[in-house]
Every structure is written in structure tokens, then in C-alpha cells.
Design a protein around this nucleic acid. Structure first.
Lengths: 91, 91
DNA sequence: TTAGTATATAGCTATATAGCTAATAAAACA
DNA sequence: TGTTTTATTAGCTATATAGCTATATACTAA
């Protein structure tokens, strides 16, 4: 499993971005409006998520639309369950 | 969910320690022997895991035995599934 | 071309983290 | 007590990261 996914998911702001995008694609501005941080700060968080391949972006006119890459997210969860889940005796 | 758990799990060495401890409790030295790092380096990783409550330690003579806190690990996985799992339309 | 809007990049600061070696602590045992 | 073994803590360096402001880029529309 790609280390970048773990690093990306280890930040609370980025996890909230992922949760936002679970409800559907959003522009960078819409995403930024959900946070108290400056817009460039969110832009960089989005870039971290993009480098982890957890989101994809697509320019639409002046807007850039971000959407979740559900495949990577599901693969990550599957990897976690495989490695850390169900290890208890009383399962 | 405790931010410390995410930070703890975002490091590859610490994830390997967790996997080792899934096979049963081990002393700090046994754990360190599985890695190319200096022993104090592993000691600090163990401390990060301890602060996240992912492991507990117990002195046994000169040894200190680490064991997995499966509860926290399972709670973490459950939290992840709840927030990020099953969001796909075609589930 | 100019102006305006949306977003990213550059450049900075402060803080966190992973690694190391050296020193310290805690227990066992002669 | 002094020595050995096991492990942690202290102190350091190098690197990464999250935040900011200022600037640049990409597109739209006048």
C-alpha cells in the first residue's frame, strides 16, 4: 500500500475533505469554504490528496472540480482490514 | 477518533511493529531485532504507539513486554469503515 | 487587451518527526 | 557493591509539514 495514502489520511483537514467529497464532486473553492484556513492552504491539502491518488481533478472553465477516487480509498480500507483486522481471538 | 492513532499508523515502521504484535506480545528487544534501525529509534516508535494507546507495556524483570491493544485498533478500523467505507453507489 | 474570478505556486516561519550517539535507569546476579 | 543486560531518555541533525501572505496562472467576458 502506498505510503502517500497513509500520510494523506493522517491529517484531519484532509480526512474532512475526503468526507466532503463522499457527498459528490466539489470545486476547490467550495471545499475551501468549509474550512477556516486560507485558500492556498486548502489547495495544498488537495495537492497532497491528488499525489496520493485519493482524488482526481478536472478543470471546468475557471473552476477546478475535485472528485473522490473511491477505488484507492476502498483499496486502502481493504489493505487495512487484511493487515490489522480480525486478529482477535474472539472474532 | 484520536488523532494520535492516525499519526501513529502513518509510519511504516510502526505499522510493521503492530503486525509483529498481532502474532503475540514481544519484548522491546525482540521487536527492535526485526528492524535495521538503532534500538533507541524503535524505543521511540514504541512510545508513539503507547501514547496512541495502540500498545501497552509491562515490565517483566529486565524485559519490557509490549502487547497490542486490539480494542483501539479495532475501534480505529471501525471508525474508518464508518466514515470512508461503503460510500460507493455500486456497493 | 484589460479586468475579474478561481486556483495554484513561491517563499517564508514554526513545529514535528525520524534518525543517530551518548548517557541514564532499572533489574539481576556475582 | 559492582557489573552486565535491557531499555529509555537526552540531545543533536536533517527533513517534512502545516500554516501564512504575496504572486502567478488560467480562464471568461467586456
Amino acid at each position: 500500500m502506498n505510503e502517500r495514502v497513509f500520510k494523506a489520511m493522517s491529517d484531519g483537514t484532509r480526512r474532512k475533505i475526503i468526507e466532503l467529497l463522499k457527498d459528490g464532486p466539489k470545486t476547490a473553492g467550495e471545499i475551501a469554504n468549509h474550512f477556516p484556513h486560507a485558500q492556498p492552504t486548502i489547495s495544498r491539502h488537495l495537492n497532497v490528496l491528488k499525489n496520493a491518488n485519493l482524488v482526481v481533478d478536472q478543470r471546468e472553465g475557471t473552476y477546478i472540480i475535485y472528485r473522490l477516487n473511491t477505488t484507492i480509498l476502498q483499496e486502502w480500507l481493504a489493505w487495512l482490514l487484511e493487515h490489522f483486522g480480525g486478529g482477535d481471538d474472539a472474532e
